[in-house]
Design a protein around this nucleic acid. Sequence first.
DNA 1: GCCGCATATAAGAATATTCGAATATTATTT
DNA 2: AAATAATATTCGAATATTCTTATATGCGGC
Lengths: 114, 114
Amino acid sequence: MTTDIDIQWVAVLKALAHSTRLQIVMELLKGTKCVTDIHDLLPASQANISQHLTILRHAGIVDFTQKGAQRCYFIRCPELVTGILALLKEDPPLLGKKRISCCSAEAAVGEENR
Amino acid sequence: MTTDIDIQWVAVLKALAHSTRLQIVMELLKGTKCVTDIHDLLPASQANISQHLTILRHAGIVDFTQKGAQRCYFIRCPELVTGILALLKEDPPLLGKKRISCCSAEAAVGEENR
DNA sequence: GCCGCATATAAGAATATTCGAATATTATTT
DNA sequence: AAATAATATTCGAATATTCTTATATGCGGC
């Protein structure tokens, strides 16, 4: 049942599902940056940043252009990334700890539970 | 700096970044289902489905109401989940393999950084 | 109480991720 | 060609995830 599309989706979500990579992506949304720039901004080693960028690139989220010895990384799909971040940002109430009683019609069949 | 928000976001993304869990979530978007229902729909063991549901619940994505011995699981934040899925669905061209040459806004980065 | 159903949890092996350290590669400058 | 700067890759250990098997828990009916 796992379609090719699913696999791509999972790869994208997995690539974003890491604190350092999410921060890299957020920085790149502000503008193209080379590895050193990112290294200066985030608390991770150069090698580690490079590894994360490779993962993001394989997921299709970033790409780079070469400028001399530098590689200028940029987000390939800003709408996708900003969209996902906007949804996450928007939804804190839903992600909160409080229980929301189910609004779904089906569950309303009578007794409430705890 | 890894903020609390980041951690929550990463938890949500990580929870969605698995084929089986993504399929569970897509099924639940169609309507509330109990564990057995999901088990009948997906190729995974009951124990495994239950484990994945626990992960989704801890991430705040699903919750359940109890009906006798059954637990009726539902999506707690349908807007968030449908939103993310819609973005992923929408963006296949961006996730494709083709190289996009840089739009060169980055040229400004130039010499001023070390 | 006991039974059967629905679901959860524990334990453990297999596998995958993460990250640091060291090294390699590539491009530029001298 | 050598030195240097920017970045990537390899290796290995620590840690985390995934999944299976077996067992446990909770619920309703008898």
